[in-house]
């Protein structure tokens, strides 16, 4: 150190340089990284995450919903901001779809755990961040319809991730389908054998047999939309297809967490038993149910 105070002047030179450099393009880039927020600059990057939303496939928001109300995300959510009520039809039977799916985004911390634990790729992160609302309690509590966004939107905000997820789903579906075919054949044979006499007996049937028909309802909602063709299919075909999913879905859930396994399998058992009376109702009631659900949602 030579002259007392020279250090201070050196420092002043640095600040002067920084000040001057902001008048040049290159300097501005290095030294003035400010983004003029509303006018310019897209701060959204590949993995940008803010709050989760629910994906639906196809056109129909509610029918296309991937979520099957397995409640894994609700259980795993660290700040516990998700609240799910399973949908029931008029007979008190669970439908594989949430009636209430609330996310309190003022509690949500955007940690993405729900996305990671979801076995159905039904919930993903949004990159939308402009959420200023007037009411903290009402407006920041997103309900199911507010959370539903189309798969196309997801493809727009996170194309790579969306493609990966779609591929994942397709692979799952293919695997399901292979299994389904095998079972379909079995089921067809069984169905023919069972016929009318079976109907009456079915009410008292134990769970192993009951599990087959159980499938109907849940399948119709979550699986049909993801397999876009499903709707075109006749109900007769849809029914056997449905048998597949209930078996698969709890299984998929099992992978996630062991608790989940217990609970979801427990849940599906519950459904099975509750659905027993339903069996006799047949496919005609299915339509009614759908219609009701549609109303309820809207």
């Amino acid at each position: 150190m030579d002259l007392l105070g020279s250090g201070i002047f050196k420092g002043m030179a640095v600040t002067l340089k920084n000040f001057a450099m902001t008048y040049f393009d290159r300097g501005r880039k290095e030294r003035l990284p400010t983004v003029q927020y509303p006018e310019a600059g897209d701060t959204v990057t590949l993995f940008t995450r803010n709050f989760p939303f629910l994906i639906y496939d196809g056109e129909e928001e509610v029918d296309g919903m991937r979520c099957v109300a397995c409640q894994i995300c609700e259980r795993e959510c660290p700040p516990a901001c998700i609240y799910i009520v399973k949908e029931k039809d008029e007979n008190g039977k669970f439908v594989k779809r949430p009636k209430v799916f609330d996310i309190d985004v003022s509690v949500c911390m955007g940690c993405q755990i729900c996305v990671e634990v979801c076995p159905f790729d039904a919930i993903v992160m949004d990159s939308e961040f402009e959420y200023s609302k007037e009411d903290r309690f009402g407006d920041l509590l997103f309900n199911r319809d507010e959370l539903l966004k189309s798969n196309d939107y997801y493809h727009k905000i996170h194309p790579e991730e969306a493609q990966a997820r779609d591929a994942n789903l397709a692979a799952k579906k293919a695997a399901d389908e292979a299994k389904k075919k095998a079972r379909e054949e079995k089921a067809a044979a069984a169905a023919a054998a069972k016929a009318a006499a079976e109907k009456e007996a079915s009410e008292k049937k134990d769970s192993p047999e009951a599990s087959e028909p159980v499938a109907e309802e849940p399948k119709a909602e979550p699986a049909a939309p993801s397999e876009n063709h499903a709707k075109a299919e006749s109900e007769a075909k849809e029914k056997p297809a449905a048998e597949e999913t209930p078996v698969e879905e709890p299984a998929a859930a099992t992978d996630e967490t062991e608790d989940a396994k217990e609970e979801s399998s427990g849940g599906s058992e519950g459904k099975e038993t509750s659905e027993e009376p339903e069996e006799t109702a047949g496919s005609g009631e299915d339509d009614e149910k759908k219609a009701e659900e549609g109303e309820g949602v809207s």
């Binding site: 250090g7 420092g11 600040t15 920084n18």
Partner: peptide, 21 residues
């Protein structure tokens, strides 16, 4: 790669500053 450059600048700004010493 740009970081050391700013560190140098920082040191110039602060490290020899008599008040800080």
């Amino acid at each position: 790669d740009a970081f050391p450059y700013f560190l140098d600048e920082y040191e110039k700004l602060l490290v020899e500053n008599e008040i800080i010493l």
